[in-house]
Design a protein around this nucleic acid. Structure first.
Length: 119
DNA sequence: TTAGTGACTGCAT
DNA sequence: CATGCAGCCACTA
């Protein structure tokens, strides 16, 4: 599995991308989690921006596994993408309730060892 | 170099 | 339970 964050990941963006790629199928992580693991606990919004850009730029990344802190899918206007995201996650075995939220206690990705939590 | 932007978050109403 | 909102921050033009 995962041991530690590679040192050659210079930028916050590189670390975010690497981390998201570590999320296994059927699991999810919150923007806050990724931001924290990447070294900037207060930059969940930046993570969201990166996920949006990676999606629109067609970057190979399991962006669908990054959701918000309530277990729901953020969309801010892009409803089409949000529905696609939900379908992709359902295909991975994740179930959603009537409010379109999944149970983080069940699906949240819990890396064995985390590092770079300098904040 | 600086200002604008937003797939966030937690706390207050 | 549902809004509202201020704080925060990396990226981009």
């Amino acid at each position: 599995m995962m041991e530690e964050l590679p040192e050659d990941l210079e930028s916050f963006m590189d670390r975010v991308y690497w981390l998201v790629q570590q999320i296994p199928e059927g699991k999810v992580a919150t923007y806050g989690q990724i931001a924290t693991y990447a070294g900037s606990a207060r930059a969940p919004r930046a993570v969201g921006n990166l996920m949006r850009d990676s999606f629109s730029n067609g970057v190979e990344l399991p962006w669908q596994r990054v959701i918000n802190s309530t277990g729901g899918i953020s969309y801010k206007g892009d409803v089409t993408r949000a529905e696609l995201q939900r379908e992709l996650l359902i295909d991975e075995g994740i179930s959603f309730n009537r409010k379109y939220q999944c149970d983080l206690k069940t699906y949240r990705w819990a890396p064995e060892s985390v590092f770079w939590m300098d904040e």
